[in-house]
Design a protein around this nucleic acid. Structure first.
Lengths: 331, 331
DNA sequence: TTGAAAGCGCTAACAG
DNA sequence: CTGTTAGCGCTTTCAA
């Protein structure tokens, strides 16, 4: 199915301007010498006809794609939109266009998205994280296109990698809480089977806790993906079970925001009675009456750097953009 | 590793399987009769070679696009991601693929996005709102593709339109506040030059206020687009100027959330000292200790219906999906 | 500076 | 059921 319509082609423009097709192509791509007079005639014809070039045909003929495929796991908070904005800015500058796919944190959906995107013969592929299905890895390696993996530095990349150490984020978070004197620490998180980076953060967190002679007192995991509501309800359940906790580490700011709202509603004093710590440094957390203590990630920069890497195309590279501890007022 | 191999083509698969190209094409598209044995051989060859079909070539040859271009103004809250999710769900079901562009609420950027998307010869075009530049309208009308405009019903559409009356949203919001006894009402909003629908809501709001014998006591407008921070700071400024306000209407939930946080930080009792009213019905507002009073919009449904309209392709249509008043606890 | 012609990889008749 | 053969609309030599 689809449209079946006769549309204007280069030939129509050429006829209208009384020149050959290749000449029209030259002025359209602004490439190759064309006399001022001829160019003017062609531009007039293009405008009069309202001709829009057919990129499909153009790409097929030139074998040189200006498409870059980007696959992100989600769009439900600002994290990946920020990354996309960064990537777009770099890609635009390099003359590339992006096509984005959303995997919903499903690894098999990622694979089928990669397959679908590769069918567009993109110049490059930007994916999220280092964990992929075997099939996806085979596809990416076999495709011959430049691949850039974003967000995580803990592991081996296929080609380009831009991010920060997810493990270190967890460690830094734990150290902060320990340094502040919290000892009875709990965790509220979402599905770490699907979100591998959340799992890595937790592992780093536990590791630093252990080095401080502590262990996680209790934790509450929700089945689905992170959300404010999930964080709120999960914290409520956790506190019923373990009312003596003095701090809770959340899998991200959405979850932490929910926890914050729970405390607000229940009159639980933050951070004296309970401290909260998140991850990402989103706007909402920053705007709370007590700014959320969290780790801020340079999301735009990650996308932008990834986009540049795809454009540059000079060998494998690994860029650590780091992250920043936001002290906030909740921990 | 990293060596760019020449891309496989149908011909390679055909040779490998010992059949003709068109037969391979038939099994790949699952269209036309092919013997089980031949199909098996071809599938084996495809798998062994790791062949990924070239959609560029496929589209050019079949002259029937399965692409649908979607242009949204923003991705910074959940509104448009929700719409996109709905659209994707309908488009997937209809065998279409979406390509999305973000206009950042800039009307000229929308036009250039439309031009760029049209170059992909999509089967349909889904845009946001009824306000477009003249150039954009000419492009869309001249393209011959099905166009669906989402979110707003107040005005004339080019072809398909799915949404609700933005004007009515404003009226309903005002009626609610009046009905609750609020009389000294202010407004906090973002740039309505760029966000035409926010302007229409405000117009409806003012209209209903006037019918109730009231006028807006004061209003605070920020230059840029809506954000939590902008809402927080703008409410602060508004209250300095007009401390006697008893209710504030916000241009959307993001702004209202900021206002809520401001009140929380300043110890301003909600709704007794000051009532707050938003627009959209986002998750964050729902999860506050006092759920935000707002208008909930059926965003997924709008996207989904728009997607179906593009697939169906049967004449202009106009679908009113309505909206819902959420009483909440802030007004 | 310009035009003619040969593809790009695939689909879609049309034969066989 | 399967192969052959034209294109799809553009880019890109190669001559002129």
């Amino acid at each position: 199915m689809g449209v079946k319509r006769s549309q204007l082609t280069l030939r129509d423009v050429a006829r209208e301007a009384g020149v050959g097709e290749s000449t029209v192509s030259r002025v359209l791509r602004n490439h190759g010498a064309v006399s001022a007079e001829t160019r003017r005639r062609i531009e007039t014809a293009v405008a009069r006809l309202g001709y829009v070039p057919n990129r499909i045909a153009g790409l097929l003929a030139s074998e040189g794609s200006t498409l870059v495929a980007i696959i992100v796991p989600s769009l439900t908070n600002n994290v990946f939109p920020n990354v996309l904005a960064g990537a777009n800015s770099a890609l635009d500058a390099g003359g590339f266009q992006s096509v984005v796919g959303v995997s919903e944190y499903q690894i098999d959906r990622e694979e089928s998205l990669i397959r679908a995107m590769l069918a567009w013969r993109p110049a490059g592929l930007i994916v999220t994280g280092l964990e992929h299905s075997e099939g996806a890895i085979a596809l990416m390696q076999g495709s011959g296109v430049r691949v850039v993996e974003l967000m995580d530095l803990d592991g081996d990349g296929l080609d380009g990698v831009v991010g920060f150490s997810t493990h270190a984020v967890g460690r830094t978070s734990a150290s902060h809480l320990i340094g502040r004197g919290y000892r009875r620490i709990g965790y509220v998180g979402h599905n770490i089977q699907r979100d591998a980076r959340a799992g890595k953060r937790l592992a780093g967190f536990r590791e630093a806790l252990a080095e401080g002679g502590l262990t996680l007192v209790d934790s509450e995991l929700v089945d689905g993906m992170s959300s404010i509501e999930a964080g709120r309800d999960a914290l409520a359940r956790l506190l019923v079970r373990s009312p003596a906790l003095d701090a809770v580490y959340f899998s991200n700011d959405d979850m932490a925001l929910g926890g914050y709202f729970h405390c607000l509603g229940q009159g639980i004093a933050i951070p004296d009675r309970l401290a909260l710590f998140g991850f990402n440094g989103l706007e909402a957390g920053r705007c709370l009456p007590q700014p959320l203590s969290t780790i801020k990630t340079p999301r735009f920069l990650i996308g932008e750097t990834g986009g540049k890497l795809v454009c540059a195309d000079n060998g494998p590279s690994r860029v650590d953009v780091g992250f920043e501890l936001i002290e906030g007022a909740t921990a």
